[in-house]
């Protein structure tokens, strides 16, 4: 399908959606958001791009095979769980590191975030694998 309006706005919207998806991913632990939602929003960006252009161009823009991304995401999520082992805790116990602590403000890094990033990749890749496959068939 070729539509000038869609193609033009998609460029803006896709970038915005991708940025918003990362925002949703990062705030997810205590506020609405998280890896799953973030992944869905991120996938929407590429789905929009696929509709505006074609599967091939979306694939080229993505650079990696989405199914690889999904599987790698599973691995990253598992690493988030394994991280607890180095602290001698049971599987998946959250490990936290607070950087640049200054009064009440700090940058929290955690294995929970690693897990969320894995989920993000898995959802993002999984949805896109499916959409690309369906889009190519029909």
């Amino acid at each position: 399908m070729q539509s000038l309006i869609l193609t033009t706005t998609t460029r803006l919207l896709a970038a915005l959606l991708l940025m918003f998806s990362v925002y949703a991913l990062l705030r997810g632990h205590n506020l609405p958001g998280g890896g799953f939602i973030g992944g869905l929003i991120g996938a929407t960006a590429f789905i929009l791009y696929t509709i505006a252009t074609s599967v091939d161009e979306a694939q080229a823009a993505l650079r990696v095979d989405p199914s690889n991304l999904a599987m790698a995401g599973l691995g990253v999520a598992a690493l988030g769980g394994i991280g607890a082992g180095f602290a001698g805790d049971p599987f998946f116990t959250g490990q936290w590191l607070f950087l640049f602590r200054d009064g009440d403000s700090y940058v929290p890094l955690s294995t929970v975030l690693v897990f969320d990033i894995g989920v993000y990749m898995a959802v993002f890749g999984g949805i896109l694998t499916l959409v690309f496959a369906l889009e190519q068939e029909i």
């Binding site: 690889n68 599987m71 790698a72 599973l74 691995g75 598992a78």
Partner: peptide, 22 residues
């Protein structure tokens, strides 16, 4: 000891990821 129960799940998961990427 708690990890002994995790290995039967974790090992196939990591194997699946690696064997898919390769």
């Amino acid at each position: 000891m708690s990890w002994l129960l995790v290995y039967p799940i974790l090992i196939p998961l990591l194997t699946a990821v690696l064997s898919y990427l390769f």
